[in-house]
Each structure stands twice: as C-alpha cells, then as structure tokens.
C-alpha cells in the first residue's frame, strides 16, 4: 500500500457491481456538452437541406400514415384531424427509437475512441439522449405551430392540466430508450446477432404502441397487452394533454415509471459491467 497522504486515485482490479463514478463524470461535463454539440453540428453539416430535415421527416411520415392507416386502413383517429393525431406519435416515437438505436451501437460506434482514451464512458450514451432531445424539441415546436394553425381555424384544443406532465413524459421516454439501448449494446459486445434484431425489433415495437392508432380503437382482447407497453401510456398521456383525446390514468403512469426505472437501472448496471473491459473482447 502506498503510504503517502497525497495519493489521489487508485486503479483496482476488482470492482463493485455498480462502478460508475458519477463524481468524475461530473468533472467531464464540458466534454458532455461538446459531444451534444458535435452530434448536432455534424448532422446538419453533412446534409444539403440542413436543419430542414428535422421538419420534413415527421411531416412526410405523417402523410404516409394518414394515407395508409387513415385512408386505406380506415383506422379511427378519435375524430381528431389526422395531422394532429399522427404528429405527436411520430415525434415521440422518433425520439424514443433514436435513443434505442444510437445507444444500442454505442460500443461499436465508439470502439476506437474507447480503446484509445479514458473518460467516464457513461457520458457518451447520456450525450446521445440529450443531442436527440434537441431534435425532439424542434419537432415539438413544429407540432405546436400546427396546433395553433388548427385552433385559429376553429379546432378546439382541449389543453389541460396534464400538460404539466410533459417534462415527466420526456424523462420517461429518454430513460426508457437509454435503458433498452444500453441493455442491447451491452449484450451485443458479446452476442453480435442481437444487433441485427434491433432495427427489426424497434419496428415491431412501434406497431404494438399507439403511434398509428388510438388505444380506444384497439380490439378489446388486445388492449391489455398494448397497454402493457410503457410507450403506450406515454403516447396516450401526451395526446391527452394537448388534444383531450386518449386515455389518461395515474395508475398506468405509475406502472410505466416503475418499469422505466427498472429498465434504466438494469441498462446502467449492465453498461458499467461491460464498459471496463469490453476493449479486450472486440
């Protein structure tokens, strides 16, 4: 043992089950902010239309949904105008899916960085959730504008007190996406085949969430299963707060929060287990 009093740090061979050093992660907050900035700037520097993509993508998806599900499938939108019904679902789902997909490849995408320099690894996946949030806010702004246009044309918005839950919903989506993504990324360092399933799985998950249909339109015997999906609660609450349509229940929200917390913690624990020596296995 080193006896000097000045010893600052120790690298140990053994570690606890949760060995994320949140104090040193805080020391790297500048890097955290720079990662967010990098993701954002690099994205629009590589495109022709730049930030315009943030608007185009949900609008085009909205039209496709309105055509396929609304016109051809004739699925109800709870008597809401189609853009107002589909947009919140698309925007929230986009954010959630992006959190999962980007987090699930975090080890592979950053293998070079991780193998060359140390920084608290957790800030990289965390920065992904926040840089995707920038896009979410921009798209959310688009939705609000469309909502205002509709309300000028006589649509009654039904904005109610549950709108105060929006930050909670956002945190839930971020934590859920991060948790699932980290679980996948931790497992894919060892089991590569899981990576192939991710894109496919996220797509399937979307159809089990009320993105393109309201929960009320789901067949009675499937409703329970669809409501088990935590994203369903989030989306329904989201729609309810702006449009007054959808199903809002406190118990569903509590269930979702607990499930999200469990998944998030599991993701963080798995990540912290894998991050310390995944460099040896890639």
């Amino acid at each position: 043992m080193l006896k000097t009093a000045k010893q600052d740090w120790v690298i140990k061979s053994k570690s606890n089950w949760l060995n994320i050093d949140f104090i040193s992660a805080w020391e790297y907050k500048d890097l955290f902010i720079l990662f967010i900035k990098r993701d954002f700037v690099a994205f629009y520097k590589q495109t022709i239309l730049g930030p315009l993509w943030f608007f185009l993508q949900p609008i085009i998806t909205m039209f496709v949904f309105a055509f396929v599900f609304g016109k051809i499938g004739n699925i109800s939108t709870n008597n809401l105008p189609k853009p107002l019904f589909y947009l919140p679902g698309i925007i929230c789902w986009n954010y959630f899916a992006e959190c999962i997909l980007k987090n699930s490849t975090v080890f592979r995408d950053n293998a070079n960085l991780f193998s060359k320099v140390y920084f608290p690894r957790i800030i990289l996946p965390m920065s992904i959730v926040f840089s995707s949030m920038v896009r979410f806010f921009i798209q959310q702004f688009l939705f609000v504008i469309i909502l205002i246009i509709y309300s000028f044309n006589g649509f009654k918005t039904h904005i109610n007190a549950t709108i105060l839950l929006l930050p909670v919903l956002l945190i839930l989506m971020a934590a859920l996406g991060q948790g699932i993504g980290l679980i996948i990324s931790s497992l894919t360092t060892k089991y590569r085949d899981l990576a192939l399933l991710v894109n496919f799985g996220v797509q399937l998950l979307m159809f089990s969430t009320t993105v393109a249909y309201p929960l009320s339109a789901a067949p009675q015997n499937f409703k329970f299963w669809i409501a088990l999906n935590p994203m369903t609660t989030i989306l329904e609450t989201f729609r309810y707060s702006f449009l007054g349509q959808g199903q809002f229940s406190v118990s569903a929200l509590i269930y979702t929060s607990i499930l999200t917390l469990v998944i998030f913690l599991l993701g963080i624990i798995l990540f912290s287990k894998v991050e310390k020596d995944f460099i040896d296995t890639i």
Binding site: M1, Q7, W9, V10, I11, S13, I279
Partner: peptide
C-alpha cells in the same frame, strides 16, 4: 492501456497522484 484506464488489470492496483 491499463495505466490509461482503457482496460482494467486482472490483478493488482495502481496508485497515483
């Protein structure tokens, strides 16, 4: 790599200031 904390040692400790 161990000193840079890119990977962890199987045995032993490192102390530093």
């Amino acid at each position: 790599k161990i000193l840079s904390r890119v990977t962890t040692p199987t045995k032993g400790n490192i102390y530093g200031t």
